[in-house]
């Protein structure tokens, strides 16, 4: 279980961003977690909540986008989602394909409110 470490890395990124923009109010962070990333969604959400409790980031929402494994067929170029470990192209039956999704462990976006510039 390394979700606490993953959550810490996400929080460190946000803290770095918060130092850069001290006036901004951060409301949410969006992360992408791939099926092959070995990160458990529930454990990550739990770790994130526990680590931000009673900190300035306590009310920050963690928005997780779950990414299934996706392959691209080496013959016809079809892109498909893998179900039941079936890597054969559903369109042309080609066995060879390359992995194009499912390993994500990314911070995609931050949602924040910044006070309006004073004129």
């Amino acid at each position: 279980m390394h979700e606490v470490g993953i959550a810490s890395s996400i929080i460190e990124s946000i803290e770095a961003e918060a130092r850069r923009r001290p006036d901004a109010q951060f409301t949410a962070v969006g992360v992408r977690i791939g099926e092959l990333s070995n990160v458990d969604r529930d454990a990550l959400a739990f770790a994130f909540e526990a680590l931000t409790l009673k900190t300035p980031l306590e009310h920050l929402r963690l928005e997780i986008e779950w990414c299934p494994r996706r392959q691209k067929c080496l013959a016809c170029g079809e892109e498909f989602v893998v179900k039941d470990w079936e890597l054969t192209c559903p369109k042309c039956g080609e066995a060879r394909s390359t992995c194009i999704g499912g390993t994500e462990l990314d911070i995609a976006y931050l949602e924040l409110e910044e006070p309006c510039e004073k004129s």
Binding site: S13, I107, A108, L110, L112
Partner: peptide, 14 residues
């Protein structure tokens, strides 16, 4: 407002 970040969670390790 939403701001695109697009970085690896483990970018420091990477």
């Amino acid at each position: 407002m939403r701001e695109v970040v697009e970085k690896k969670v483990l970018s420091e390790n990477d």
